[in-house]
Write a protein that binds this DNA or RNA. Sequence first.
RNA 1: GGAGUCGGCCAGGCAAUCGCGUUUUCGUCCUUGUGACGAAAGGGAGGAAAGUCCGGGCUCCACAGGGCAGGGUGCCAGGUAACCUCUGGGAGGCGUGAGUCUACGGAAAGUGCAGCAGAAAAUAUACCGCCCGCCCCAUUAUUAAUAAUGUGGGCAGGUAAGGGUGAAAUGGUGCGGUAAGAGCGCACCGCGCAACUGGUAACAGUUUGUGGCAUGGUAAACCCCACCCGGAGCAAGACCAAAUAGGAAGACUAUAUCGUGGCCCGCGGUGUCUUCGGGUAGGUCGCUUGAGGUUGUUGGUGACAACAGUCCCAGAUGAAUGAUUGCCCACGACAGAACCCGGCUUACCGGCCGGCUCCCACU
Length: 129
Amino acid sequence: MKFSRQLRMLHPREFKQVFNQPIRSSDPCFRVLARVNGKQHHRLGMAVSKKACSKAVGRNRIKRLVRESFRTQQAGQVSAGNLDFVVLPTAWATNQSNETLVKSLSVHWQKVCRKAEDSNDNSPKPNDG
RNA sequence: GGAGUCGGCCAGGCAAUCGCGUUUUCGUCCUUGUGACGAAAGGGAGGAAAGUCCGGGCUCCACAGGGCAGGGUGCCAGGUAACCUCUGGGAGGCGUGAGUCUACGGAAAGUGCAGCAGAAAAUAUACCGCCCGCCCCAUUAUUAAUAAUGUGGGCAGGUAAGGGUGAAAUGGUGCGGUAAGAGCGCACCGCGCAACUGGUAACAGUUUGUGGCAUGGUAAACCCCACCCGGAGCAAGACCAAAUAGGAAGACUAUAUCGUGGCCCGCGGUGUCUUCGGGUAGGUCGCUUGAGGUUGUUGGUGACAACAGUCCCAGAUGAAUGAUUGCCCACGACAGAACCCGGCUUACCGGCCGGCUCCCACU
């Protein structure tokens, strides 16, 4: 699959929308936030802080892994509505191998999509969990 | 062969599949454009891209001008757009040597500073000593006065040889000299000044003359001297332009105020008149052809320069340059361009090449 510029979130206001009322998924490596975007495709945004990784080389590595994972897995999946994803790596992720991070991400994608479908089905009812 | 020293180079490789920017070409579509989509081909991080410590280019402020303040540089010459820890040379320190290190101008313009130790730390001084003289004491000689002697005491003076302190104590060694001593005198060494010679110069000298010898250290303390430095930075700056708002440009000019930077001068705007276009979000440019790389020739010890040929080698902007698999090996460190160059500094797994020095062995 391709990963063109249209599949990326480019403006601060788009990030703000996701931060507003997101679907969450987190583990020691990443926090993933998502929200239905009402477009023809999923979109990806990243926020890799200097706090998470002080070296530019490390930040680039994480961003490339996230993009690659998104491209190979998420773009093919069909869910109730297309989503905007924002991936926030933690400082812990800096020291992990590529393999570990890729595994972690694929779990996140599935989890977020399932949650999105559930909330779409149950949206009329209040959640009594 | 071993030890060392200096310089240069590389920064895992190959293949397959998938993917991201960029440039060019071609095709399709339409709203005919700096368009969208697709295909092919080319190219896609570093030696430090880093730290932002210096120096420039470039942009705007006046064409960056005068003065004060402030800052930088600091042996000599050269190279450079400019700076430097660049190049060559000099001096001094270290090393057997190849080499290497040096904030390396001025302390007889002035001011300041120096713990402990030591007698004394800057107009030299005199603690222990050494020595002359006088007085007392003791002993000996002597009739006494007196004289001589002293591991003896005191007073006044002469000394800086010797001792000890310190990072540093007012030239060193020897001989003469003297009461003891002293550049007091002499020889040699060292030092200062002048001349001469060599060198563009710093500086040097088996050279000559002269001076008995002075001006201790510290200027990464103030300072003095010489030379240099305007400020801000690509979020510079230029252009296109929704919403919104009513100003903007040119000419002339007293005060006040702003641009303007640490300050003053100076310069430009706000004021008046004339004429109609200005501008935030966002976008485009700036943005990579350059003090460029590379090959050769010539000049130079060299840094480097000149000429000729040849090449185009990242240009992103929520920010591309990656992932997976297989094989090989030395098993892969530090680390990611953000306007561009020249240096410096710091980080770093390892590997390769060359010059030179010393030691050992063999011929």
